[in-house]
Design a protein around this nucleic acid. Structure first.
Lengths: 335, 335
DNA sequence: TTGTAGGCGTTATCAC
DNA sequence: GTGATAACGCCTACAA
């Protein structure tokens, strides 16, 4: 762990100037003899270029940050799995930020881009406040948002269509003969929470079903909150025959409650989740879930960002990833 | 996204030297008037210090890298969840590397520390080859290994005791009356794969049960491989009444196969996994699993590394995290 | 083709 | 207390 060699060390060893060393190392035209001596010296010394010094000069860090609410949610893991190889192939490292969906922390992370430790950032916020929008446009490096931002916001943006997703799920449940379809949502001040509730109402309307407040409960996007909310719903509307859940974690929470209440899935209550995470396939009965394309969204975001890093001036782009219903055992068969 | 302000900009604006700016910004004793003018200028300009320049000077990046096989395995997610906050509290960012358990890539990642983009690294390799050991000791920054390295290797090291873990599981199965206990392992050239097989043999011996080759199958540490291996095992040893699996993913693969074969869990075949990931609790029936303390190991590794960054000279430390059997429905009741 | 020198933005050591 | 000034390691005009 001695002091590492620098181009100066190499220059001395090879008997040339540091400029020549730099040229050789960067493949610029150089006399063959010089090339040989420099490479030999570099090799003997085990030289590795200092990324920090290079960054200071080049004004590029070859790092990209990814900020999400909680890496415990498999949705984000699915995104990272796609983001990482795309970045890596382009020579970028990935820096991770967990924000706990805390607005102040997300703003902070955006502001931290001013430290120039990364060339750009991918962020997947649950809430998008005015402060977010300000921080995004003020950010010192390009930002790609996974999630919906207000129309016209000048930001590269990858969005899922959870509205259509809810619609797909409700159509499916309706086709199975379910008529008392409950909805367990996440917080209404989050973008997905609000969008999914609206979509639920619209879908009911389109199906000619009444909107019944007793059938709706709000928790948070975690399993335990989902369980609590599902329990409340079940108490209020015991005749529910299907549960639409705003994500897979909530759905698994609902599983726990339904089991404890002695309701069979799907015979008594069909359950649909959202995000189609790995958990959906593992759960028993396997969980029908609306796939919002987390993997595709991650990949698209990474590509948008790389593209943006190549051309800062191109107009912002919006990528829509269509939803897809993945039916499994939790909705098979009738009531 | 204009060129960001630097201490030079501030110095001009405040009518002082860059040295004074630096002093104020670093809280060194300065005349009050100067402090005020500098802070005012910095504030007006929205100054944020450049992390790269600071790193070049200070020779610290305030970044730590974490390298693991595959972020798709919840074990690593559990580690990250602990590592991240610990690092963050100490002012470090987290850089992520997925290596696919590829030895060459892991060596590469270790070597990349020579670029000095991180102050240290936490690595959780499946295989530990001689090349690993060489690369680790040659690394230009401190490395903490999660997993077992040969006795006496001068490296900070956090290890689980999967041997004892296997023993706990087999004792449990034996107590439940199981006598034909199969074992689905991962590759034998991995450290955990080899250790767990040895432990399986020892445990059988201690219990007075014969070692039967037909009861052992090797796959990889993924669900599909686990399923294939379990299927082979089932064909060869149809009378198996329990399956010990080398991790949770394998166990879930075994679930699939057992179900397809019409075997009830646990009535016909009890199943035990390893790692006690989130999946174990979600699966149905809930999976009994040996908790190897992924979370604790992550936290311990982060703390070892931070500690090492404070004192490069202290002797290497080894932290052992004891295993714990978490019993769930997949092993309840007798044959 | 090669070397000298300046600068990227900070910190830190000097004199003043 | 404060201001020049020299690093940190690299890249790149510009000169030779």
């Amino acid at each position: 762990m001695a002091e590492g060699p620098t181009i100066t060390t190499i220059a001395e060893r090879a008997g040339v100037s540091i400029a020549s060393v730099s040229r050789v190392l960067n493949g610029l035209p150089t006399r063959e003899e010089t090339v040989r001596r420099v490479l030999a010296a570099a090799d003997e010394l085990g030289y590795v270029p200092n990324a920090v010094a290079r960054s200071l000069k080049s004004r590029r860090t070859l790092q990209v940050a990814f900020a999400m609410a909680d890496i415990g949610n498999p949705v984000y893991v699915a995104m990272i799995r796609q983001i990482q190889p795309v970045l890596k192939a382009a020579g970028y490292r990935l820096v991770l930020h967990s924000t706990d969906a805390d607005v102040a922390e997300e703003i902070d992370v955006l502001r931290s881009l001013g430290e120039r430790y990364a060339d750009g950032m991918i962020m997947s916020p649950l809430r998008v406040t005015d402060d977010h929008l300000k921080a995004i446009t003020a950010a010192r490096a390009p930002v790609v948002i996974i999630g919906s931002v207000p129309e016209g916001t000048p930001v590269d943006n990858v969005r899922a269509d959870s509205g259509t997703g809810v619609r797909l799920a409700l159509d499916h449940l309706y086709a199975l003969g379910r008529r008392r379809i409950g909805f367990v949502d996440g917080p209404l001040d989050t973008v997905p929470g609000a969008a999914r509730l609206a979509a639920y109402r619209d879908a009911l309307h389109a199906l000619g079903l009444p909107y019944d407040e007793d059938l709706v409960e709000i928790g948070d996007f975690y399993r335990t909150d989902g369980a609590a909310a599902a329990a409340r719903l079940l108490r209020r509307a015991g005749d529910v025959d299907a549960l639409m859940c705003a994500n897979d974690l909530i759905a698994l929470g609902a599983y726990d409650v339904l089991r404890r209440a002695g309701r069979r899935i799907p015979a008594d209550v069909a359950v649909v989740g959202m995000d189609d995470t790995d958990l959906a396939a593992v759960a028993w009965p396997a969980l029908t879930s609306v796939c919002l394309g987390s993997a595709e969204r991650g990949r698209a975001a990474a590509e948008l960002l790389l593209d943006r890093l190549r051309d800062r001036e191109r107009p912002p782009r919006v990528v829509m990833v269509p939803p897809r219903l993945v039916t499994r055992a939790s909705t098979e068969g009738g009531p």
